Computed example of a mutant assay.
Amino acid sequence: MGTWDIGPFDNDSAADFSYQIDQAAGADDKAAVFLAAFRDVAETGEDAFLDSYYSVKAVASAALLAAQCPGGEPVTTSYAPKDAIPVLPATLRPLAVAALDRVLGPDSELLELWEESSESEEWKAGVLRLRAVLAGADA
């Protein structure tokens, strides 16, 4: 995975994932892309190895979902989806939180890769901010 910064779309896999979101036809299809990204991560067992490819998509999806919540920051990078994201179902938020918990948990390749970086703490703080926005939106 080519990574050039710590943002949710600052890597090749997330940038490619943007295209997948843009290709989804309608609001329901786009929501299904987000649902799959969160499930691919949240539904892995705690003892199972979590490949970074799936984690990157979940973090990118969480950033887009959090942008629609109170306190969420807009995603403005040119690597994000080009098309507007329709209002996503609030029911995705708890699954997004669970996915982010899994990304930051044991046997997460993405976490391991970031822990080898000098920007590890800044990256983790960004993921935790997303989680806080998403968890707070459910309160």
Score class of each variant (00 low, 15 high):
A15F: 06
A15G: 01
F17M: 05
F17D: 00
S18F: 11
S18E: 01
Y19P: 00
Q20E: 15
Q20G: 06
Q20R: 05
I21G: 05
I21S: 04
D22G: 13
A25D: 12
A25K: 12
G26E: 11
G26D: 15
G26Q: 13
A27H: 04
A27S: 14
A27P: 15
D28C: 00
D29G: 13
K30T: 14
A31C: 09
A32R: 13
V33N: 05
F34I: 00
F34G: 00
L35G: 02
L35V: 02
A36E: 14
A36I: 10
A37G: 03
A37M: 09
R39C: 12
R39T: 05
D40W: 00
E43F: 06
E43S: 08
E43H: 10
T44W: 01
G45H: 07
D47E: 15
F49A: 14
F49P: 08
L50F: 08
L50E: 03
S52N: 07
Y53R: 15
Y53T: 15
S55P: 09
V56L: 12
V56G: 07
V56M: 04
V59K: 01
A60P: 10
A60K: 02
S61Q: 14
S61T: 11
S61Y: 11
A63S: 09
L65H: 04
L65N: 03
A66C: 08
A66V: 06
A67H: 01
A67Y: 10
A67V: 00
A67F: 07
Q68K: 02
Q68M: 04
Q68C: 03
Q68N: 13
Q68P: 01
C69D: 06
C69H: 01
C69N: 02
P70F: 07
P70K: 12
P70I: 01
G72P: 03
G72L: 01
E73G: 00
E73C: 02
P74S: 12
P81N: 03
P81C: 02
P81M: 10
K82H: 12
D83Y: 02
D83G: 00
D83C: 05
D83H: 09
I85N: 01
I85W: 00
P86E: 10
V87K: 10
V87F: 01
V87R: 11
P89K: 11
T91G: 07
T91A: 13
T91S: 13
T91R: 09
L92T: 08
L92S: 04
R93Q: 13
P94W: 06
P94I: 07
P94S: 13
P94L: 09
L95V: 12
A98Q: 14
L100E: 08
D101Q: 14
D101H: 12
R102C: 09
R102G: 11
R102M: 02
R102L: 08
V103Q: 02
V103H: 03
L104Y: 09
G105Y: 05
G105Q: 12
L111W: 09
E112L: 05
E112C: 06
L113E: 15
E116Q: 15
E116I: 04
E116N: 10
S118H: 10
S120F: 15
E121Q: 12
E122Y: 10
E122K: 14
E122P: 13
E122N: 13
W123R: 08
W123M: 09
W123H: 09
W123T: 05
W123G: 00
K124D: 10
K124V: 14
G126A: 12
G126V: 11
L128D: 15
L128I: 11
L128W: 03
R129N: 14
